[in-house]
Design a protein around this nucleic acid. Sequence first.
DNA 1: GGCGTTGCTGAAGATCGGCTGAAGACCGGG
DNA 2: CCCGGTCTTCAGCCGATCTTCAGCAACGCC
Lengths: 225, 225
Amino acid sequence: MRVLVVEDERRLALALQHGLTAEGFTVDTAHDGPSGLAKAMDHAYDVVVLDIMLPGLNGYRVCSRLRASGSDVGILMLTAKDGEWDEAEALDTGADDYLSKPFSFVVLVARLRALARRIGSRAPRRTVLGDLVVDSAARTCTRAGTAVALTPREFAILDHLARRAGEAVSKREILDAVWDDGPDSDPNTVEVHVSALRRKIDSPFGRAAVQTVRGTGYRLAADGG
Amino acid sequence: MRVLVVEDERRLALALQHGLTAEGFTVDTAHDGPSGLAKAMDHAYDVVVLDIMLPGLNGYRVCSRLRASGSDVGILMLTAKDGEWDEAEALDTGADDYLSKPFSFVVLVARLRALARRIGSRAPRRTVLGDLVVDSAARTCTRAGTAVALTPREFAILDHLARRAGEAVSKREILDAVWDDGPDSDPNTVEVHVSALRRKIDSPFGRAAVQTVRGTGYRLAADGG
DNA sequence: GGCGTTGCTGAAGATCGGCTGAAGACCGGG
DNA sequence: CCCGGTCTTCAGCCGATCTTCAGCAACGCC
């Protein structure tokens, strides 16, 4: 699980990074508001641990900006017990949970896992695009109610495109997501599979579901074609 | 009522087993986190009594993994009063109730009964998929009203698939849920048992109940095939 | 229109993943 | 101890799937 710790006290940030890594988390750190916000928006974290007192941009504002940008990452706020900062306010700005300083490390880990579980269960498992439905959990795809048989690679590509429906996705990103090869894999492989995929899911009427974005990659039409 | 006691102190575990058996419960025990988790997933218990301090995998983690796997078994956590382990955390990770050590045996029994009552009214013990019925509590399976005799392994696999009916389930997950081997167990074992299972439950008409999801694992058809 | 670049696609061979029958180990009951 | 049922391992088979390659098509720029 990927965690971002935004904490300006370097010693605490480092301690958290080590401790959480030992617990099996993948941990990144940031030491001020703006860089924390930037990292949170750049990378797909599962949870952000967010201190409130931060240089540049305080935790409340980082939190509300993240939410304003449409992120639904889990946010756990660290509040100083005595300060003027209020736990209720943390939840108001869009945090999922809070913890008062000083806190026990064990409690933090438990809360993180609880949060991750809640987050995980709210991730959408089906993507509906017009009459095209991609069900990630069942690993099935239907067009106008009819099941479409896809090979593992085809489904993996479609699934990845569906998670970013309407966005252009590069072939390199698809290669990284679907294959675990090194960086010297052949984009033509993607082309071949996309070609097969199209034959199966493109409706004979309508436009193409998988659109070519020349020079970049592909985009799954937000309305399914 | 079926109870699993996960407790590393053998003397306490044994005492609980005897005492609860005398009270009319059916009791199983496990002495560490991983085997406790495996047993809890393998068998259809009504309640799991879960110590927090456990070798291998602590109680919080057993609890959250159980919940993550979709189990809705009743969970009663045993917390040490003085430690940094917190009752609130127990509830956060998905436990239904907790009891601080040391506790009175009478109180434990009372809590167990109360919990069992609450759980009983919410836990689906039967999964109905078309004319295929899987009864987790009775550990029986019927096809179109006719009982189907299954071996323990076959039933455990079917039960696990039924709990996630319609979803693709990986062989690894099945191995983890049904066997308590390490991570180097052989997926072919699953294949062999699934093959046997199919011979018994696939209706000669209709589609396959247990569908192969190539590259992933299996899926139990939501309509039973 | 010409040209270089980028993407598409059919074919072929290699590879992979899954199924199954058989053999022997294992286990619990009699 | 023997027996029947169950489980695991193994190896062969088969079809599905993947990759590679080469030629062709489409595009955008000049």
